[in-house]
C-alpha cells in the first residue's frame, strides 16, 4: 500500500446560500509537506483551513485525514455524515493558530498551554507543565509563562498560541494569516518560530499567508486560490518565478507592487 496523503480534499464544495466559496476543491497534502495558500481576499483560502478544522461544515465532497474520512464515517460500507465522537477522534490530529490569537484571557500563558492537554487528553498536571515549559521555551517565552495574554505583545501572544496548539501534539498544523493582526516589527519573531517548528517537528503544515517572501522561502508548494478554485499550484520557485496563469501573474504583480 502506498502511503496515504496526510490530508485529502475530495470534490469539496462550500456554499453560503447562492454564493459558492469553494467549488469542487481537490487537494492532497503529503505527510510533512509545508503548503502555503495565497490568493486575493474572498478566494476561499481561509475557508479551506476552517473546514479542515471543522469550524465550517461542507456542502459536498469528503475531507480525508490519513486515509480516514473526517467529515464522514463509514456505516455499512457507505459514507454518512460523521457524528461528534468521530469528528473529535480525527480532529485530534489537527491544530490551528488564528489571526486573532484567541488565547484564553483568564489564563496565564502556561495555563493556556496545559488546559487542553489536561482536560481533553487527561494528562497529569506535572506532565502537562513539563511539556508546556518545553514548548514555551521553544517559542522563546519561558520568562513570560506566568503572564496573562493582556500583559503580552501581539507577537508574544501569537507565539503562546503556537505553543498551545503544539501542546496537543497535532500531526497537522494550520496557520490562518497568523501575522496579519501584528504590527510590522512583530511579524519576524512569529515567522521565526514557525520556521523553527517546521525544522524541528515532522509536521504537516498548511498556511494561509500574505507574506510572499516567507511563503517562497518556507513552503514546499504554493497554491494560488482564485474564486473558490485552485488557479495554479507548484513549487514556490516556479509559481513565484514563472507563473503560468494570467491571474497568478496579476495577483503577484499587485502584491509585490504594494510590498
Amino acid at each position: 500500500m502506498t502511503e496515504q496523503p496526510m490530508v485529502r480534499f475530495e470534490n469539496v464544495s462550500k456554499r453560503y446560500g447562492t454564493l459558492t466559496v469553494l467549488d469542487e476543491l481537490n487537494l492532497e497534502i503529503a505527510r510533512g509537506e509545508k503548503v502555503s495558500v495565497i490568493g486575493p481576499s474572498g478566494s476561499g483560502k481561509t475557508t479551506v483551513l476552517r473546514m479542515l478544522m471543522t469550524l465550517e461544515t461542507i456542502n459536498d465532497g469528503v475531507i480525508w485525514v490519513e486515509g480516514e474520512p473526517l467529515t464522514h464515517m463509514k456505516k455499512n460500507g457507505k459514507l454518512v455524515p460523521a457524528d461528534l465522537a468521530h469528528i473529535r477522534r480525527i480532529r485530534a490530529k489537527i491544530g490551528m493558530v488564528f489571526q486573532s490569537f484567541n488565547l484564553f484571557p483568564h489564563m496565564t500563558a502556561m495555563a493556556n498551554c496545559i488546559e487542553a492537554p489536561m482536560t481533553v487528553l487527561g494528562m497529569k498536571r506535572a506532565e502537562a507543565e513539563a511539556r508546556a515549559a518545553e514548548l514555551l521555551d521553544l517559542v522563546g517565552l519561558s520568562q513570560k509563562k506566568d503572564h496573562y495574554p493582556s500583559q503580552l505583545s501581539g507577537g508574544q501572544q501569537q507565539r503562546v498560541a503556537i505553543a498551545r496548539a503544539l501542546a496537543m501534539r497535532p500531526k497537522i498544523m494550520l496557520f490562518d494569516e497568523v501575522t496579519s493582526a501584528l504590527d510590522p516589527e512583530l511579524v519576524g519573531e512569529v515567522l521565526q518560530v514557525i520556521r523553527q517548528i517546521g525544522r524541528e517537528h515532522d509536521l504537516t503544515m498548511l498556511m494561509v499567508t500574505h507574506q510572499m517572501g516567507f511563503a517562497k522561502e518556507f513552503s514546499d508548494r504554493v497554491c494560488f486560490f482564485y474564486q473558490g478554485k485552485i488557479c495554479e499550484q507548484g513549487p514556490p520557485g516556479e509559481l513565484f518565478g514563472a507563473p503560468k496563469n494570467e491571474r497568478t501573474r496579476q495577483f503577484l504583480h499587485a502584491v509585490l507592487e504594494a510590498g
Binding site: 478544522m53 471543522t54 469550524l55 473529535r88 480532529r91 485530534a92 489537527i94 491544530g95 490551528m96 488564528f98 486573532s100 484567541n102 488565547l103 484564553f104 488546559e115 487542553a116 482536560t119 481533553v120 498551545r164 496548539a165 496537543m168
Partner: peptide
C-alpha cells in the same frame, strides 16, 4: 474566537 480556539483544541 474563544469557541473556535476550544474546537481547535478538540474540547
Amino acid at each position: 474566537g474563544q469557541w473556535e480556539a476550544c474546537t481547535a483544541l478538540n474540547m
